[in-house]
Design a protein around this nucleic acid. Structure first.
Lengths: 223, 223
DNA sequence: AATACAATTTAGATTAGACTAAATTTATCG
DNA sequence: CGATAAATTTAGTCTAATCTAAATTGTATT
């Protein structure tokens, strides 16, 4: 009985959170895509959710959904579970960063708070998961990102890859082949609007555009 | 999509398996108790299950349920997950043997076969879980128990505790306090039908009857 | 063999979460 | 500013798993 929220409510909260990070509302259509549920079903669910849990979720017809502060915490709980699990599975069972997401996706809903604490402690309370994503703290605060999007860098700048966001397994494997994992040192070779050419420290030259990239690569502020 | 069985079907199979180990059928009432579901619901579910998965489950009105060979394998899969998870959680996250059951109960339904393999490999393919229960093999065979019920021992016999079955968390804590964990050396002090008195190696004298015992303690054949 | 009790099943209702099709609202753009 | 497209919601249906209450079947006992 650790949590009275059903699995799918946790999923709704998580995806509402992710869609509202930029400050906007989460539209039923956007949620529909992410959840693989038809828009009409999302409307229905979101209406019930807002009626049943007004402390978590705010909904207005045709305006989409937002989370309350408390709702955001509930979402961060799920995200913390997910990211700790990814880190844990990579560390203790040798999962690779492209395999680990799917497994964590299922486990995140069923682990106890005790499990969460034990994992965190066993890893020394890590700040980031294997993709470099920030892990919400135990008191459910999302730390501030202290790095910069790739597109903010100028040619010749040196940087270290910090985080690879929203990439699917195939892209992750590709990036790994190229050595573009979190921690990799890179130098910006050429740069124009969306044509990011960069060289990893080893000297290999890669076109990020050539990877048909959909996610974003974040890097440390260069020193 | 690893498995097309829903969670509750897995639970039905697992409990049918456990109830039919002695060769009998599993009655709807017995299942009802274990699953915390009303008998009428069990009948209903079991009828649907047998209709939908005749390769797994056999059902006859008023005669209860049995598993086919294939059904038994499906059940052993869940039991293997459970026992590997218990071993894994105890080993890597420091869970105690009385805490670990509940967590494994939830996780057993959502881990992948890959997860199962990785755990098994990481622990060197253990034969028993923390309670001493045998872990079904990777090809889903339940190994033969090579130890003996406590009640088969005679006074003065020495033995080593191998397995503590079906005990709840409270009893497990009590047994732990007394040093009666798997691996403990014991000597049978007195014995009469159900009044098992035994002495642990350390010298403490314990009445197993006094513990109001509900599970069974299995021990190695004494040498 | 008759009766009574327990176990099991049937029948019908309920709930949650999804779906489709149709209606409505909002946005866009000549 | 009105027409059309896109997004959203409404209304009604479906399925799975449960429930309760009532009916039935099986079992034991005298």
């Amino acid at each position: 009985m650790e949590s009275s929220l059903t699995i799918s409510i946790q999923d709704y909260l998580k995806h509402i959170y992710e869609l509202t990070e930029g400050g906007q509302n989460a539209s039923t259509n956007a949620l529909s895509e992410r959840l693989n549920v038809k828009p009409a079903s999302v409307t229905n669910m979101v209406q019930k959710l807002a009626a049943a849990q007004p402390a978590l979720v705010e909904y207005q017809k045709h305006q989409g959904v937002t989370l309350t502060k408390e709702g955001r915490k509930a979402a961060l709980e799920v995200i913390r579970h997910h990211r700790l699990l990814e880190a844990w599975l990579v560390k203790t069972l040798g999962y690779s960063w492209d395999e680990v997401h799917e497994e964590a996706e299922r486990l995140e809903h069923v682990i106890s708070e005790d499990f969460e604490r034990r994992m965190a402690a066993a890893m020394g309370h890590p700040l980031r998961d294997p993709h470099g994503e920030l892990i919400p703290t135990a008191d459910l605060v999302m730390p501030l990102e202290d790095s910069t999007p790739l597109s903010a860098l100028r040619p010749k700048q040196k940087a270290k890859i910090q985080c690879v966001k929203n990439a699917d397994a195939e892209l992750l494997r590709h990036l790994e082949d190229l050595g573009l994992l979190p921690g990799a040192q890179i130098v910006i070779v050429d740069y124009s609007s969306f044509d990011h050419n960069l060289t990893v420290k080893s000297g290999a030259k890669v076109s990020v555009l050539g990877l048909n990239i959909t996610g974003k690569i974040f890097v440390d502020y260069p020193g």
